[in-house]
Amino acid sequence: MKTAVIVFPGSNCDRDVAVALRAVTGTAPAMVWHGDSVLPRTDLIVLPGGFSYGDYLRCGAMAARSPVMQAVLEAARHGTPVLGICNGFQILTEAGLLPGTLLRNAGLSFVCRTVNVEVATADSAFTRGYEAGARLRLPIAHHDGNYFADAETLDRLEEEDRVAFRYVEGENPNGSARNIAGILSRSRTVLGLMPHPERAAEPVHPSTDGRALFEGLLGVMA
């Protein structure tokens, strides 16, 4: 399975996710610079966490308009799975691949800790390694993770079973609408989530609950 990680100026989880991908697939991912306009052949594109373009304008706004994103949009249209983690999720909403947006955390603080997250659907390449309702321990580290969309969009996401992950009821760390921590595209081939599965994938990490996300992808695309 070939994978590609897009590297933007200010990405800082690109190497973390590269380590997780190599551990699971056995092959190092291609690291693609944001200024490139061509992607290598790949079975999975990852937009990593970080602070692309220093969060100028809006989180993810500049990255979503960078040269490489035309190629990412094109690949996504043809069904190549795209995974956006944290800043990657913000980029996916800014690029229009996922609905809604991520606002400043309701408490205004940067939140960096491990949270309880529930798998809301196992029906996707990203979540097939989990059982729906499974509770995971995953780290978050963000200032703008407060998922927002209008009520109609939120209803549609729920009707179409496109909420992939939710913060456990009563433990919402950022004010996200309906406790949403991650959502899928209509095609179910694009996932954006604020928690960091790549930082919960090795025995030395506080949890290994994120590893099944990458392993699930391997089973589909090998």
Binding site: L57, R58, A61, R65, P99, G100, T101, L103, F148
Partner: peptide, 9 residues
């Protein structure tokens, strides 16, 4: 429309 504003919000 393309950059300065996010029409969602």
């Amino acid at each position: 429309e393309k950059l300065l504003a996010n029409p969602v919000i």
